[in-house]
Design a protein around this nucleic acid. Structure first.
Lengths: 226, 226
DNA sequence: CAATAAAGTGAGTGAGTACTTACTTCTGGT
DNA sequence: ACCAGAAGTAAGTACTCACTCACTTTATTG
């Protein structure tokens, strides 16, 4: 069995960290990670000094640099493993399972997908905030995540959309455009709630509204009003 | 005729700048504004030094502080007048005009609204980027803009939604929840295109997709699949 | 045109910045 | 019990930061 691990073609720091281990950390190194995530999430990367991280982690500043060499690499070391987890390869199986069921609906799929990913964000709220806040500034992060996203998520979602499109329920535009609409909304949804409004969770009512909005948004118009 | 100008109850720097004049600036002060917007948009507020702004504006650093006192106030002086323009009181008339027409459709309204606001963003792309990027970090900006938004935009939009809701075309949930869905999508739409992807414009095809998505998203389900 | 105010600046300043160095302490394998 | 290498640190380093001050230049006005 061949396992293809390499997804990105570029050889970057991003990939280096992707393949590095995050386990067997010392207690102090753990404290650095926790402190850094908390401070970066709260005040942003640029507004947090390494001195402050060291103080909160109750560790000498030099300990941070012994391990991470630069402040920049510290950020990447926090964010990259999170991204790795956010798009799990396991999702493939789950999706195949869902779409193999004959009675499965697109609504059910979207509900499962949304609730699952929101739960994941809630579990790791702070690091999600760091990611969203810093992806705007760090070109490297942006240029690596966007392809990573489109290469891992797009094929999976395309599969699902295709299935329901064949049933004729969905709007008659290319799948890439449907996906763009869905992810624009979901992106706006989680970013506004968890980053802008700093919510700790999202209640079910709002999630159901969102699901309805997405489902109807991409369905074939029931009446042409043009 | 009474003109009620005070919208916010708090007495803050935000309001002070809101009521201050932006006209009769010197040539050099104009250069400072242009340089600051460009640099803040490109690298972010925290990653831009006042020395760099002065250099790009070809002005002494002290000139910036003579006028704006602090770097923080410089940012607010750029962003607040933009916010002021973004939610124009004129919109009230326009909306009344639109909804007074008997043959007006919700789709037509959304199209006019979206295209108009997107055109405004395109015209002032850099300052829009500054606003979105910094609203995440500056609590003051956030805590002032959110009420400003809800007090100026919500009543107007509520009026429109109400009208079309009476016709029975829209989903049967409270208007505030409908508005939240619409603005979550539109927010995600403009933020992702203009800030994350740094696009200079949005083509008509994509705007039409967005309109369809919104219209269908909030319409009454044509078939109940529950 | 003189008086006054406003706009502008060169040369700082102290506080903070990411990062380094020379050294000590801890830990796991033999 | 020993010791090599990893983990940790106090005390720096060079440099950048927002901001100030004493002073000059330009614009306004009676």
């Amino acid at each position: 069995m061949k396992v293809v691990k390499l997804i990105l073609t570029t050889n970057s720091l991003f990939n280096e960290i992707l393949s590095s281990q995050t386990a067997n950390r010392t207690v102090k190194q753990q404290r650095i990670v926790i402190a850094a995530i908390r401070l970066f999430a709260e005040k942003g990367y640029s507004n947090t000094s390494t001195a402050e991280i060291a103080k909160v982690a109750e560790v000498s500043e030099a300990s941070i640099f012994k391990q991470y060499v630069t402040k920049d690499r510290l950020l990447l070391s926090l964010v990259v493993p999170y991204i790795k987890e956010f798009f799990p390869s396991k999702a493939n199986e789950t999706i195949n399972q869902i779409i193999s069921k004959a009675d499965s609906t697109f609504e059910g799929f979207i509900r499962a997908f949304l609730k699952n990913r929101i739960a994941f964000i809630v579990e790791n709220r702070e690091i999600f905030q760091v990611l969203i806040k810093e992806i705007i500034y760090k070109e490297e992060l942006k240029n690596e995540l966007l392809p990573y996203f489109s290469e891992l998520v797009t094929p999976l979602m395309t599969k699902v959309i295709e299935l329901f499109k064949e049933r004729g329920e969905l709007i008659d535009i290319p799948i890439t455009r449907i996906l763009k609409l869905i992810f624009t909304f979901i992106g706006g949804f989680v970013a506004s709630r968890f980053v802008l409004l700093n919510q700790e969770s999202i209640n079910d009512e709002e999630i159901e509204d969102a699901i309805h909005f997405i489902i109807n948004g991409i369905q074939k118009a029931s009446f042409d009003n043009k």
